[in-house]
Amino acid sequence: MANQVKITQRDIEQDGFSKNPFFHSLIAEVPDQHRTKEGHAKMGCVIYFYAYSTLTGRSVFMEALYVMPEFRGHGIGKALMSKVAQLGLAAGCNQLNFSVLKWNKPSLDFYHSLGCWDTTSDPEFYSMRCEGAALQSLVEGNPPKTN
Rank of each mutant, 00 (worst) to 15 (best):
M1Q: 10
Q4S: 09
V5H: 00
I7L: 05
T8R: 02
T8A: 09
D11Y: 01
D11Q: 12
I12L: 15
I12H: 02
E13P: 01
K19Y: 04
N20I: 01
N20H: 13
P21C: 02
F22A: 14
F23R: 00
F23G: 01
F23H: 10
L26V: 06
L26E: 03
I27V: 15
I27E: 12
A28D: 08
A28R: 05
H34S: 15
H34T: 02
H34L: 15
K37Y: 05
E38V: 08
E38Q: 13
K42S: 15
M43D: 00
C45N: 10
C45T: 12
V46K: 07
V46A: 15
V46D: 06
V46T: 14
Y48N: 01
Y48L: 06
Y48F: 15
F49G: 07
Y50D: 01
Y50M: 00
Y50T: 07
Y50F: 14
A51V: 11
S53G: 03
T54K: 06
L55M: 10
L55I: 08
L55A: 10
G57V: 09
G57W: 04
R58G: 11
S59F: 11
V60L: 02
Y66A: 06
V67R: 04
M68G: 04
M68L: 13
E70S: 14
E70L: 07
F71M: 11
F71V: 06
R72N: 02
G73R: 05
G73I: 07
H74V: 01
G75D: 02
G77N: 06
G77M: 07
K78T: 13
L80Y: 09
S82A: 15
V84A: 04
V84C: 09
Q86H: 15
G88I: 06
A90W: 02
A90M: 05
A90C: 01
A91V: 06
G92R: 01
C93L: 01
N94R: 12
Q95N: 14
Q95F: 11
Q95W: 08
Q95S: 13
F98V: 09
F98I: 05
F98N: 10
K102W: 03
S107L: 02
S107P: 03
F110A: 05
H112A: 14
S113R: 02
S113P: 08
S113T: 03
L114N: 03
L114M: 12
L114E: 02
G115N: 03
W117K: 11
W117N: 10
D118C: 05
T119I: 12
D122N: 15
D122W: 00
P123H: 05
E124N: 15
E124M: 14
E124W: 10
Y126S: 11
Y126Q: 08
S127C: 10
E131T: 11
G132L: 04
A134K: 01
L135P: 01
Q136R: 14
Q136Y: 07
L138F: 13
V139H: 07
V139T: 11
E140S: 10
G141W: 02
N142Q: 10
P143W: 02
K145I: 06
T146D: 06
N147Q: 09
